[in-house]
């Protein structure tokens, strides 16, 4: 008989799958690759269940595993084929049959243009609901680094999406562009 806490943990892991998938899809830009990532994450988590400290944040633990797998795989791939950022944006099509939200298409392609460290910081803090501290823990960096990555990600998205073009039609936008470099 398997001990009850482990069964409970498995249920909790299954419950985390939708948010792991959303993160993986947004991070990698590809559903197939994201699902492989989630599967590898689940396998690794299940074979390391004994390493999970009860009472700590299960989601953060799972996201850390997924994030590390993503980066080690990414490094491996980059060694095999050169994968310039430009082609990435083109691949970021999640489900065209539900493409009624033109905004999302724009948003997704803008998101894909961010450096991956900024993208992951923004996704963790702005969408997955982690605190800056948790995101720093997941990414293995300082809280200040996460904060500045999130900030830079927002600024870049704003300029890619022309979020502020309603307010500044004048010389203000040029000033802003100059500041952003």
């Amino acid at each position: 008989m398997s001990p009850a806490p482990e069964a409970e943990l498995r249920e909790a892991i299954l419950a985390a799958v939708p948010s792991l998938r959303a993160f993986a899809i947004s991070l990698s830009g590809q559903v197939d690759r994201a699902d492989d990532l989630v599967q590898d994450t689940l396998l690794r988590a299940l074979s390391n269940l004994h390493r999970f400290e009860p009472g700590t944040n299960l989601n953060a633990w799972l996201f850390t595993i997924l994030r590390n797998l993503f980066h080690s795989e990414y490094r491996k791939r980059r060694r095999e084929i050169e994968d310039p950022d430009g082609s990435y944006a083109g691949r970021l099509r999640v489900h065209p049959e539900q493409g009624s939200h033109l905004d999302f298409e724009d948003f997704r392609s803008a998101l894909a243009k961010l450096p991956s460290d900024q993208r992951e910081a923004l996704l963790l803090v702005g969408a997955s609901g982690f605190s800056y501290e948790e995101a720093a823990h997941i990414c293995g960096c300082a809280v200040g680094t996460i904060k500045s990555r999130v900030n830079r990600a927002r600024l870049r998205l704003a300029s890619l999406l022309n979020v502020d073009d309603i307010e500044d039609l004048g010389p203000d936008s040029m000033t802003r562009a100059a500041i952003q470099g």
């Binding site: 939708p18 905004d103 948003f107």
Partner: peptide, 24 residues
């Protein structure tokens, strides 16, 4: 650190969460 004004920040946050919710 140039900061985004709060309106723009909110618009980006809303879009991000809307996209994410759809995935979830």
């Amino acid at each position: 650190d140039p900061k985004l004004d709060s309106t723009s920040q909110k618009r980006i946050g809303d879009q991000l969460r809307a996209m994410y919710d759809e995935l979830m």
